[in-house]
């Protein structure tokens, strides 16, 4: 509470706070934070023959994240297989983010410029897909773009193409799927800052001879920048760790990081490598988050200073 209390009351408050936090902390320690520490330990162990680990210290897992030793010549080289998957994950995530921004920004703007009463309705339309099962949405995209899917049927029927285009199981299909499933994450924060936008500022800009494009670029965009950054991060991060979408739409050959990690716990039977890869993914995500916190912090300072 805002008011200053005597030491005795403050101590009582501290005790009850600790008590209140206990259940959540126990659950999170057991099934969220704690296990992450074990992953860290596992990444320094030796893989067992049939999965699992042997409790023997080894750097090999971390080493093989980026490099590989030729089986015959013992020569060192970059682990192309891993690095190309890292690169593909980052590339597809970036492309997804940009595509989501291109569609999401105008959509958020569209909703924010509706009359106040109908805005909630449009937001509900965005919320519904967001809270429906990700697997189902991915599956819906899969049905749409498969060889005998609706898109191909439509194109064949109109005569634009003569035979079905292979869209499923390509990088394009993964990207399409990710844009589709994560688009609401882009729209929600942009809309949140757009809603607070004072349109008298836009009027002022027009009054001062700005064109539509310049109003957008010099007035609207800078004011909703925090929302754009938040939306981009919110899309980028889950894309990096995406597992279901590339598995369903990538058809096993266009792997992303999430699938590579899973592979180590399945057929690959290299748990330490899987652990090291997981932590690498986590590291990239943390870098993105730090970048976000900094960017938003800077914007916040500007807004207040």
């Amino acid at each position: 509470m805002a008011d200053d209390l005597s030491p005795a009351r403050a101590a009582r408050e501290r005790r009850s706070r600790l008590l209140l936090l206990t259940p959540a902390m126990i659950i999170l320690l057991l099934a969220a934070s704690g296990p992450l520490l074990i992953v860290l330990i596992y990444s320094f162990l030796t893989p067992g023959d049939y999965g699992g680990v042997v409790w023997k210290f080894s750097w090999d897992a971390w080493f093989s994240v980026v490099a590989e030793r030729d089986f015959f010549t013992d020569e060192l080289s970059f682990a192309d297989a891993h690095l190309s998957i890292f690169w593909r994950s980052v590339k597809l995530s970036l492309m997804t983010t940009v595509a989501a921004l291109i569609f999401g920004f105008p959509t958020a703007y569209f909703i924010a410029t509706r009359p106040k009463r109908s805005r909630d309705f449009w937001m509900l339309l965005i919320m519904i897909p967001f809270w429906t099962n990700l697997l189902i949405r991915t599956f819906a995209i899969m049905e749409l773009i498969r060889a005998e899917g609706t898109v191909n049927m439509l194109l064949l029927w109109t005569g634009i193409i003569d035979e079905p285009i292979q869209m499923l199981f390509t990088e394009f299909s993964i990207m399409l799927g990710m844009v589709y499933v994560y688009l609401p994450l882009m729209i929600l924060p942009i809309y949140a800052s757009m809603e607070r936008l004072d349109f008298s500022l836009v009027e002022a800009a027009y009054d001062l001879y700005a064109t539509r494009w310049r109003v957008l670029r010099r007035v609207i965009f800078p004011l909703v920048r925090p929302g754009v950054i938040a939306g981009s991060i919110l899309v980028f991060i889950p894309c990096l760790g995406a597992y279901v979408t590339p598995r369903v739409l990538g058809g096993g050959k266009n792997l992303m990081l999430g699938n590579l990690i899973e592979l180590q716990f399945g057929q690959g039977r290299n748990w330490p490598l899987g652990a090291a890869l997981s932590l690498s993914l986590l590291a990239i995500v943390m870098v993105a988050l730090i970048f976000y916190v900094r960017a938003v912090g800077r914007d916040g300072e500007k807004a207040h200073g």
């Binding site: 704690g34 992450l36 074990i38 596992y42 760790g241």
Partner: peptide, 23 residues
């Protein structure tokens, strides 16, 4: 405390999944 409560939102699901599998 706040970071811990929100951890599941920040850590990629696949990482948590792997961690839980091991644990």
């Amino acid at each position: 405390a706040f970071a811990m409560v929100n951890q599941p939102l920040m850590v990629p699901e696949i990482v948590t999944a792997v961690a839980l599998l091991i644990f």
